[in-house]
């Protein structure tokens, strides 16, 4: 068995800035681990050089080979999840296992309307 999972409470994948992002990670790995990290970050996708930033991270040292842990982050104020033709900003939750480097990832949305902002689209009505 070689498994890493990440999930959010009530399977919520869209959040407003300032909202609590709650979830849990689970793993079942054959070898000894040094640490497991859960990250909240964003990255750009599109044409040209891409950018990425980890804005928060929780680290669990010397975890057992099998286990589960809850996590909580506060959704940051910016940048909003958005997409245009040339660039998208994508928020994600990621689990990274040390030393092996195996990962699991879940894309999420952080925006005032809980919907990805589409550049060029009409503004949502109040």
């Amino acid at each position: 068995m070689n498994e890493i999972r990440i999930g959010t409470k009530d399977e919520q994948t869209a959040f407003r800035p300032g909202e609590l992002i709650e979830g849990a990670i689970g793993w079942n790995l054959p070898e000894e681990l040094r640490a497991i990290e859960v990250r909240l970050g964003w990255q750009t996708r599109g044409k040209g050089t891409e950018d990425a930033e980890t804005v928060n991270e929780i680290k669990f040292d010397d975890p057992p080979a099998q286990g589960a842990r809850p996590f909580q982050f506060v959704a940051p104020d910016q940048p909003y999840s958005f997409s245009g033709k040339l660039i998208s900003v994508i928020w994600f939750l990621e689990v990274r296992v040390r030393p092996k480097g195996a990962t699991a990832r879940k894309d999420i949305i952080i925006a005032p309307t809980r919907q990805e902002v589409i550049l060029g689209a009409p503004a949502p009505s109040e």
């Binding site: 996708r45 599109g46 044409k47 040209g48 050089t49 891409e50 997409s83 245009g84 033709k85 040339l86 660039i87 998208s88 994508i90 589409i118």
Partner: peptide, 12 residues
């Protein structure tokens, strides 16, 4: 098409 879905995006 949204940038993140573009099959010719840099990451791809």
């Amino acid at each position: 098409m949204k940038a993140r879905n573009n099959p010719f995006a840099t990451w791809r």
